[in-house]
Amino acid sequence: MALLSVDNVTKRFGGLVANQSISFDVGDNELLAVIGPNGAGKTTLFNLISGFFPPTSGTVRFDGRDITGQPSHKVAAAGLVRTYQLVQLFSQLTVAENVEIGSHRVTRGGVGGALFRPDWFRREERSVREGARELLHFVGLEGQADLPADKLPYGRQRLLEVARALAAKPRLLLLDEPAAGLNTQETEALADVITRIHRGGTTIILIEHDMSLVMKIAQRIVVLDFGKKIAEGTPAEIRAHPDVIAAYLGGTEVVDA
């Protein structure tokens, strides 16, 4: 059974139809990319899936449960964790603290635990700190753990956001244009990180503009244009799809890039 199924989802903003009857499934441990020109409705689709706002009609099912219209923190608590197109770090906190906050979903300490510090609480805090160190190592930020997050160069802020999302041990990770604004080396480092996350067993949906990145790492691609799904298939199929070429790629030179 699919881990995520988006069924006939429509979102209207007044007269504008941002998403129109979109359906697709994502299987366990798949790496799916959603592509499309600017304004095609990709981020709207992510917002619907992650509970940021409810769809006008249609349903979203995650892990067999109907999560349509649930508030975003509940969707996240269920294991569907997203990142944002514009980096949303806790900029005043350190790099390590950012990742530690990420583990909120998989820990349980509350006010009582914090006040009386029983054994389980201290064990949990220790594992949160150790987990954060490991994740920083995983994305290559171990040397900057104690730096304020906003002092990181932009490309590394992206990696930090991914590490923070990983600390939540997501079952499904939504990455909204993680390579936006990155240079070639940074994009390569990111592609490597995404591939390793995927190999580690996490299901990923990726919105991306960088075609070479998408073609290299995605197993399956969904193409949106003007709010509609116009194609779905493997990278090879999408590359050859006439509608996709017309709507989005515009020419073979982009694909070859």
Partner: peptide
């Protein structure tokens, strides 16, 4: 007491809200 509460999962959740509410929500913080 304030110091203990700040240095915990609870305190981190508060700091997350101060930093970015969308990010806090996306990490499952109510």
């Amino acid at each position: 007491v304030a110091n203990r509460l700040r240095r915990s999962r609870f305190g981190r959740a508060l700091a997350a809200i101060a930093g970015s509410e969308p990010a806090a929500l996306a990490l499952g913080i109510d």
